[in-house]
Amino acid sequence: MAKKWLGSLLLPLPLLLIMTFLGLWLLHKQHKRSGRTLVLLSLLSLCLLSTRPVANALMAPLETQYPTHLPALRTQGQDPIQDIVVLGAAQAADPSLPLLSQLGHAGLVRISEGVSLAHAYPEARLIVSGYAGGEGRSSAELYAAVAQALGIAESRIIALPLPKDTAEEAMAIAPLIHGRHALLVTSASHMPRAMALFHHQGAKPTAAPVGHHVKESQGSLPLYTYLPSARYLERSEIAWHEYLGLLKEAVSGQL
Rank of each mutant, 00 (worst) to 15 (best):
Pro67Trp: 00
Val85Gln: 03
Lys32Thr: 15
Leu73Gly: 08
Leu11Asn: 05
His119Ile: 00
Gln102Ile: 11
Cys47Gly: 14
Leu24Asn: 06
Val115Phe: 14
Pro12His: 15
Leu16Ser: 10
Leu10His: 10
Arg33Asp: 06
Leu26Glu: 01
Gln102Gly: 00
Ser96Leu: 10
Asp94Tyr: 09
Leu16Cys: 08
Gln102Arg: 15
Leu48Ile: 13
Lys29Gln: 12
His28Asn: 13
Ile84Asn: 03
Ala72Asp: 15
Arg74Met: 08
Ile84Glu: 00
Met59Phe: 05
Ile18Thr: 05
His69Arg: 06
Ser116Met: 04
Ala57Gln: 01
Ala120Asp: 02
Leu43Phe: 05
Thr64Arg: 04
Pro67Glu: 02
Glu63Gln: 03
Trp25Arg: 13
Gly88Ile: 00
Pro12Ser: 14
Thr51Lys: 07
Leu48Gln: 10
Asp94Arg: 09
Trp25Lys: 07
Leu99Phe: 09
Pro12Lys: 05
Gly104Phe: 03
Cys47Pro: 06
Ala90Phe: 11
Leu41Ile: 12
Leu70Ile: 03
Arg110Glu: 09
Ser34Pro: 11
Val115Leu: 13
Ser42Asn: 04
Thr75Tyr: 04
Thr68Tyr: 11
Thr20Asn: 02
Leu99Arg: 14
Ile84Tyr: 01
Pro80Gly: 12
Ser112Trp: 15
Ala93His: 09
Leu38Cys: 14
Thr37Ser: 12
Leu22Ala: 07
Gln30Asn: 14
His105Ile: 09
Pro71Asn: 03
Ala120Gln: 08
Ser116Phe: 06
Pro71Ala: 08
Leu100Cys: 11
Gln91Glu: 01
Leu58Phe: 13
Leu15Ala: 12
Ala55Ile: 02
Pro67Ala: 04
Gln91Ala: 06
His119Gln: 03
Leu10Lys: 12
His69Pro: 01
Arg74Thr: 12
Val86Trp: 00
Leu22His: 06
Thr37Asp: 07
Pro95Leu: 07
Leu43Asp: 05
Gln65Arg: 02
Ala93Tyr: 03
Arg52Asn: 03
Leu117Phe: 13
Leu103Ala: 03
Ser34Lys: 13
Ala72Lys: 09
Gln76Asn: 11
Leu103Tyr: 01
His105Val: 14
Ser96Pro: 08
Leu15Thr: 08
Leu43Lys: 09
Gln78Asn: 11
Leu11His: 05
Tyr66Gly: 01
Pro61Phe: 01
Leu15Gly: 05
Leu49Gln: 07
Leu17Lys: 08
Leu22Tyr: 01
Ser34Met: 14
Thr75Cys: 10
Arg33Val: 15
Asp94His: 07
